[in-house]
Write a protein that binds this DNA or RNA. Sequence first.
DNA 1: GTGAAAGCGCTAACAT
DNA 2: ATGTTAGCGCTTTCAC
Lengths: 366, 366
Amino acid sequence: MASISAPSPSGAPSSHVVALPGVVTLQDVAERARVSVATASRVLNGSHRTVSPERSELVWQAALELGYTVNRHAQAMATGQSNLVGIVVKDIADPYFSTIASGIIASAAKRKLLVCLASTSSEPGGESEYLALMRAQRARAVVLVGSRSDDEELERALTREVGVFQQAGGRVVSIGQPVPGADAVVPDNVGGADALARALVAQGHRHFAVLAGPEHTQAAKERLHGFQAALRSCGIALATQDAVHSAFTRDGGYQAMGTLLARRKRLFKQQTCVFAVTDVMAVGALARLRVAGASVPDDICLAGFGDIDTLRDVYPPLTTVRLPLRTMGDIGAGLVLDERVGTAPRIVPISCEIQLRMSTELRTAG
Amino acid sequence: MASISAPSPSGAPSSHVVALPGVVTLQDVAERARVSVATASRVLNGSHRTVSPERSELVWQAALELGYTVNRHAQAMATGQSNLVGIVVKDIADPYFSTIASGIIASAAKRKLLVCLASTSSEPGGESEYLALMRAQRARAVVLVGSRSDDEELERALTREVGVFQQAGGRVVSIGQPVPGADAVVPDNVGGADALARALVAQGHRHFAVLAGPEHTQAAKERLHGFQAALRSCGIALATQDAVHSAFTRDGGYQAMGTLLARRKRLFKQQTCVFAVTDVMAVGALARLRVAGASVPDDICLAGFGDIDTLRDVYPPLTTVRLPLRTMGDIGAGLVLDERVGTAPRIVPISCEIQLRMSTELRTAG
DNA sequence: GTGAAAGCGCTAACAT
DNA sequence: ATGTTAGCGCTTTCAC
């Protein structure tokens, strides 16, 4: 076993930067092994070994004894490349994002890369800011997770920042909503919502309402519009007052459901089917309905979007649109971490799968 | 507005490292502003400005026009310090960890630090490995989240690795289970489980079982023992067969509950109260009970530990031991990111709060 | 107030 | 196969 011994303080390098006692450099190792730094570098960190077994052994020995650890910053400087990859999510505590993140992180770990994570609290322009940070870190790639607001100014700024990042040699992928010029993993929000609507109509549902999420967020808009369009093509209209906007959160769902209940007292007897554009919101809505004394699905039906694992055990089980969240993270990471073949941005569409469960079962007496 | 213009390719530095077109260095800025790099550095990144306003303005102008971004690696090399902080969790997709992580991340963001996150998949020795990685990155600090296995060899290795990291100038804090020599944020697992047991007994419960989590994980052991000891002091014994071990996951809870049901058919009529040492496990148990056709709380009662936000809407609402997860992350980050006063490791105990909810309500006919 | 210059620790020509 | 050496981009002493 290696015994870690700090280098003697007397041997401190003569520099304005005070070298911490205990930080061993390649130089130290080379000296101890009586070889050049180049050789030491080749043995310890170099890819192609063209070093004799004996010397190699000597170097390893010295490194172990001294407790050497490479300085990644020095390495990054010398090679012009780092082993960092960035992830930006809206809120890491939201299971939707943490599931996607887990896919990305696993993917990066497999490639021995270090992951930097930012949680923007949905702060607009957060991704641009982080992109700049990661550019300063010379990150290999960054993954932008989540749909953004439709503010044109912000979008322009982001597109530009992405361009600058790429210009500097980095790669960018977005998961959820494409950014011009970058790779993307894009769930079929419109198609999923469309299919959900048709499935519900096929089950016999005729009365609908939507907890539509933030008014200016792309994904929310797509899901609402897909749902609405499908209903329309089935001859069912969705009144404006039947789509309530709110935050993409549990509390957002709770509040929006409250608004809906207040607006439409007749929700109950019609056994209206409420589509929450997010599972997390659906759970909030469920809580609100419980407070109102409404039974799901007997009084009101409820569907979500995402099929989030952590929420798979709520009761009643939620009808929803399944998204392979972890896989999406995986794919996104692969897009920017694997050797690049072409040059044009690649878009990977993700299709959805309808999961009909108890939360939308119609009363047989319906 | 600044227009980002790439430096002319002809001006490429003569080095073996091919400078990407589009990466602007401090040198470039200095030249454009007709000042020395020293001055440019002082203006752009230096702390004490001792630069005349005119020159300062010139430098900013040049930096903006060129689209300059500092190279953090170079900065780290020159100063011997980086702006990185590491976090290690078992599984970022687990809401327990993602909630704690969100606290840490917010805390770090407030201090303009970059967060690197690793998810070890509960792989033993994962924290040691990551600590070494972060040492190579010259990270300021790392936060170790989650309780570990009781493997002595692994613990020794971790303790040593923590020492080496600190020796190199880094700071370490653990959240969940202390590491010798490092700061720690430690929830009162024993006290929480004890209080829970007493509260349940006070409610009238007499028959208990425990979904005890992984046999060799510290937190699981503490919760089991705290619960068991409290029961004992109330004159209630917990048979060995009434504590079932399993993974700390939803599926672990599901399986363990299945085992318990198979072992003890009489669970139902006694209205046994089952304590799952984790909320996530409790939810798995809930699912298993539903499959078995058992009603909670009418047939069997159920309690968890953690009071995880994402699970606050399961039905019936879970009796549990509340832990201020996000705050714990906050505190942990503060411990290692704020200016240090003393030198001895600081332990911050976190007390728990019992939340009695519907899942443990006794039949009135009890 | 400003600039010249010496590194930080490492890698990669290039020479031997 | 091994060593010598010139940087990577930045900060900071030290002299002016």
